[in-house]
Design a protein around this nucleic acid. Structure first.
Lengths: 95, 95
DNA sequence: TAAACCAGTTTATAATATAAACCAAATATT
DNA sequence: AATATTTGGTTTATATTATAAACTGGTTTA
């Protein structure tokens, strides 16, 4: 009846991060922090979890002299998101 | 951009409970435990949290000699669920 | 009458989310 | 030129949560 909800995605901030990355080719740390209105510490932790799980890739580089962290969703991330959305529907459409 | 997800509903088991109650006039503890495939302990805790929040009402009675706990969703529960579903959409439909 | 079962509750524990504190480097201020 | 502030994060600590294990009070079965 009710499908499992991937605990990695069933988190407000991580879901927001994935949602952003699904929509855009890539996004950097600062952009995501602003869009999600999250603290840097929290975001850092959640990005690392998504990276560990293989749902996103993270690339560190420099924009001029300032560091930049760029995130992209991976195929595994896309399919996990699709599966999560599908599972959610088993909770949202009663009966 | 991203709407708040009511933390009381953003929980697999509590969401399942509400989902069941939205669909049926009332449901008892055992029925919910079976439908959600949860342990009695976990369900007991989550039902109490939903009751505290005023999202469901809980009535204790007897079916013959055995105790029975019947749950019903309240108007507050219905509107919280609707709000939650609406907020979720801000995460599911990218852009 | 004792063992097993039912319908839960309470309590303990492990995992999670989150913010606070920190760090190194860059930039702005006096 | 020194000092303060900002930037872009990471690490660590804490409070909350989800969950299962242990328990309770009563019932049915052997």
């Amino acid at each position: 009846m009710f499908k499992e909800l991937d605990p990695l995605l069933h988190s407000q901030l991580r879901l927001a991060v994935i949602s952003i990355l699904i929509g855009t080719e890539e996004a950097d740390f600062v952009f995501i922090r602003e869009k999600t209105a999250s603290t840097a510490g929290n975001l850092s932790v959640q990005i690392e979890k998504l990276r560990e799980a293989g749902y996103i890739s993270v690339e560190k580089s420099f924009k001029g002299k300032m560091p930049r962290t760029t995130c992209r969703i991976t195929p595994a991330g896309i399919s996990a998101f699709e599966k999560y959305v599908d599972a959610l529907h088993s909770y949202l459409q009663p009966k």
